[in-house]
Design a protein around this nucleic acid. Sequence first.
DNA 1: GGTTTGACTAATTTACACATTCAGTCAAAA
DNA 2: TTTTGACTGAATGTGTAAATTAGTCAAACC
Lengths: 201, 201
Amino acid sequence: MPTVVQTIEVREAILDATDRLLSNYGYKKMTIDDLAREVGIGKGSVYLHFSSKEEIVLSHIDRIVERVKKQLRLIAKAEVSTAERLRQMLLNRVLMRFDSVQHYTQNLNDLLADLRPNLLVRRKRYFTEEAEIFAGVIDQGQQSGELSEGNSMELAEIFLLSSNSLLPFSLSSRELGNRDEIEERTLRIANLLLKGLEKKQ
Amino acid sequence: MPTVVQTIEVREAILDATDRLLSNYGYKKMTIDDLAREVGIGKGSVYLHFSSKEEIVLSHIDRIVERVKKQLRLIAKAEVSTAERLRQMLLNRVLMRFDSVQHYTQNLNDLLADLRPNLLVRRKRYFTEEAEIFAGVIDQGQQSGELSEGNSMELAEIFLLSSNSLLPFSLSSRELGNRDEIEERTLRIANLLLKGLEKKQ
DNA sequence: GGTTTGACTAATTTACACATTCAGTCAAAA
DNA sequence: TTTTGACTGAATGTGTAAATTAGTCAAACC
């Protein structure tokens, strides 16, 4: 009997292989046969971990966002001002996503065209989940008096919305510009938003 | 001999028809024969005004952005605070674009897939042209002491970038949400950015 | 004369029949 | 009990002939 660890390892290996195949072939041309061969397991075994091809790829995207959220939670706990945490969180949100799909040749929207309806549903969920982490930090800042008042969840959503156009989706990483430019732009947005959010002295 | 006015009228009629055909059929299925019939002129006459199908559709998009820019320049001259002008400009920028393609069933990105390379080039130009109008108002605000210092063109670009994800491009107007929601979100972004930009008293 | 046109052409797209490939299953092997 | 790959219907690709279309230009039209 495989241990839970082994099960998770295989699952992770499938998602790793998914990333490689997606970046080379896109969703349509990536086949479950290829995937199983790449992982070194039988085709049927893939279906012990996932119920469909669509679920595999969505899980891969989920994993990327989970990693981003993990990093956001880490920064949220750092021992610096709330403004600095929010700045770093926004920067990481944008750059981690950029780095995650940098090796993809097509843009995500086309790459995942067949999943579009489900993908849009997930994107909304991702957005809310990320916003909740931002909102927690904003709450702290408001309680400590560092940040001015306002609905923290609404403010968090403004932060994310303002940086959304810098995420790779309809534009590939390539089309978005080079990484340094993205970083620069994200910081500028963060700085102006934070200036608006910080309590005036 | 047709007058200049007649020439412009036909040109405008072609672009009007382009809008109708695009919204119903998309770029690929829209034919020049259809277009000429819709306008009530011969097919060859279409080519007296435009050099290619691609140029027709790009001119149609140009026209939308020209109308937006015209409205922005109008608001830029209004007799209210610079902050209020910037707020209204951002709102109009987003909502005019929303309204312009509200009747399209597909999203613009798919609708115009064949023009993608040229369209991306234009989008950059549109962005800069709009930013210049914003920058002018920011300059005024800085000179009058209403707004805090900083590179006005960079600040203008932050304003536009922050609202870019609310423009219909990879998402259709339908997918973006209803008009009131878009308006609400744009205003929230504008308000927070302006709070950051207004001179602290 | 200049202006407008639609028949024309090369190139692209479609339609269709057929072959191949694929997602997902499940009986058998491990 | 777990893993597998042969199997199946559905979907996708392929080859090819027919149809459509972007763009042209000689003739028709004022």
